[in-house]
Each structure stands twice: as C-alpha cells, then as structure tokens.
Design a protein around this nucleic acid. Structure first.
Length: 208
DNA sequence: CATGGGATTGACT
DNA sequence: GTCAATCCCATGC
C-alpha cells in the first residue's frame, strides 16, 4: 500500500481532517488507524500559525504532507499533518488511533494494558508509537512516519468542537469515528454538540 | 533576559 | 470534580 501523497494534504484542511479518519499511521513496528482528528488554520487564533511565520511555525507554513510535531504542556508530543499549499499555515492534529500493529510494544511504552488506553489521545498515541520532536518536518509519504490510505469502507464520522482550547472554541473542527472506543474523551456522538456527517462528500459544517 | 501560557495526562478529593 | 508536572516559545521589558 502506497502512502498518501503530498497532494492529499495540499487541500483545504477542513476536507483533509475528516478524510484522514480510517487512514493508518505507521512508525516502525507500530501502527494504528486514525479515529479522531482536529483541523487548525492560520486564520483562527487556536492555530499556532495564527501569529505568523516564526521559528516554531516554520513547518506549518511549509510544504503539505509533512509532520508538524511539537511539545505540549512541556510533556507530550503532538503529531500533526501539515495541510494546504506551501505558504498557508494549517495542519490536522492526529488525536487518536485504533491500535493495529505492535500492540505489545505499545503496552510496554505506555505502561498500561487496556488496548483502549494505548492511543486514545494525542499525547498517548505519540508515546505508543514513539513519535518524538525529532520527527518534526519529516515527510509523511517517504519518511520514518508514514500515513497509508483507507482500505475498507468510508467510516461514519461525527464533527464536534475541538478539545482543550480557549480561543475559537466554538468551531466544530473535531472529527471522530462514530462509536469507536479509541476516540478520546469527551465522546461527541451522544452530545448536543456532536453533528453527524454524511459518510461521503460534504465538507464539514463551519457554523456548528 | 524574564515571564506566562498552553492543541494533555494521570493522580487524587 | 481539581490540580500539578514540565518545557518550548512568543511576547514584552
């Protein structure tokens, strides 16, 4: 299976974020299917690129299809896929995976045994797959970390508000695979904020 | 150069 | 429900 090419990412971030649900992240012997993402764009203040081009945001403004990895709360690494054409600061945060390969290795790295706790959060999945800051700005189609296209049917996806942000908190730019136990809390599919999205076609709602 | 605020998690009340 | 850990980096003096 060939990795997704840069052209896949060089589109509007609100199209790429739901399209990544069901795709597979591979690093070494470990791999998992994406079940939760969030979109970030330079025009809204929750995005790091909102402040413009700096040393930190250089990757975000660079070519699409590369990894943007940064440290959050001084502890966790966050894995993003850079999107939109070069010069536009936008990315999709990979928030949760369904473990597929190297599960015992993930258990050892995470120190927990429950499969649902291995990759159900952005900090958890980078620990389970051993994705660190050294992978920032590496290509996702021929680098150490690769993303493979969906193999099965298009999954049902629900959009909801993003997690853990204070600015532009009302935008429904979080996308989750419906009823998948590997999605991080809070689960959106029972809440009033969650909105089901057609399995195919339509772009996510901007208005909530 | 000092400061403050996180795209989080896990432990605890 | 609350809270601390821990560090990068944007910002302001």
């Amino acid at each position: 299976m060939k990795p997704l090419p840069p052209e896949f990412y060089g589109r509007p971030v609100l199209e790429v974020a739901p399209d990544l649900i069901g795709c597979t992240v591979v690093h070494g012997e470990t791999a998992g299917t994406i079940v939760e993402t969030e979109a970030y764009h330079q025009e809204e203040p929750a995005c790091h690129a909102y402040v413009g081009l700096t040393a930190r945001t250089r990757t975000l403004f660079g070519a699409p299809g590369r990894a943007y990895v940064y440290r959050s709360y001084g502890i966790h690494a966050m894995l993003n896929a850079v999107c939109e054409p070069e010069g536009v600061g936008a990315a999709v945060l990979i928030r949760a995976l369904a473990p597929e390969a190297g599960i015992e290795l993930m258990r050892a790295r995470r120190g927990v045994s429950d499969e649902r706790e291995l990759c159900s959060g952005p900090g958890r999945l980078t620990q389970a797959l051993a994705i660190g800051l050294e992978l920032n700005d590496t290509p996702l189609d021929h680098g150490e970390v690769v993303v493979l296209p969906r193999e099965g049917p298009v999954p049902a996806v629900v959009s909801s508000v993003r997690v853990g942000i204070t600015k532009a908190a009302e935008l429904p730019w979080r996308f989750s695979a419906v009823s998948n136990p590997n999605v991080s809390r809070p689960w959106p599919w029972r809440t009033a904020r969650g909105r089901r999205r057609a399995p195919e076609g339509a772009v996510a709602s901007r208005s909530g």
